[in-house]
Design a binder for these strands. Structure first.
Lengths: 114, 114
DNA sequence: TCGATATGTCATCATCCCTCGACAGATCAG
DNA sequence: CTGATCTGTCGAGGGATGATGACATATCGA
């Protein structure tokens, strides 16, 4: 089993990590700022979560002095969208009305998890 | 509103459950047929996974005699798409080219984690 | 140089969960 | 009714994982 495949889904399984991703959606943040926004966990826990997100390719790191700024990496998004498209390809009409997206052409792309 | 936020992401974290969802994308299946397609786990494990998927609202159940046919429920898909849209709203161009979808309008509000 | 700041890593502990066998309930065939 | 089939649930066991404090590394300021 390809170890790379499930890393993204494993990373998204934790609510703190999803909270980190939503915080980074507003732009890059230093680790300290992230730890302040994520409630209920300490700084080292946030650091561990950032490691998981980095392993999954969901975030990228930029070093500047003592700080490390994290930001969203759009690369694995296609894996998520691809999986949703594969599972829900027969229900795209309802997806459109709920999420505000429309199919570009009649045929659908595949290749998501392997 | 969605009663539980993280159930969908937790359900997607397990590779066997993702395999089940992909099998159901072809149409409804009985539990026995699902257990035959999912490699590496026994029947009771598949039954447990189906319970998790049912709790998360990802699948629906239809009873017919001794059989129970499971099929994809498109309802929680909007939660997945909504989360992806929130996290990657600044990278939608790359998403379009990778997944074959296009935004319908400029704005799109949704709640992902609750 | 020395201290403060910012962050990662490690060991530990508690908890969660995946997996399985055994059993139970329901339904069909004879 | 009797047996076979289909599926869910329960309890146990083993491995994975999240949270934390102590420590290490690197950088900035005086």
């Amino acid at each position: 089993m390809a170890p790379q495949g499930g890393l993204v889904f494993d990373a998204l399984a934790d609510p703190s990590r999803r909270e980190i991703l939503l915080a980074l959606a507003d732009g890059e943040l230093a680790v300290g700022d992230i730890a302040e926004r994520v409630q209920g966990v300490g700084r080292t826990t946030v650091s561990s979560h950032l490691r998981v997100l980095r392993m999954a390719g969901l975030v990228t790191e930029r070093r500047e002095g003592r700080f490390r700024f994290y930001s969203i990496d759009p690369t694995p998004a296609s894996q998520l969208v691809g999986f949703v498209a594969q599972v829900y390809r027969d229900s795209l009409d309802e997806l459109r009305s709920d999420a505000g997206v429309a199919p570009r052409s009649a045929e659908g792309r595949s290749s998501a998890t392997g």
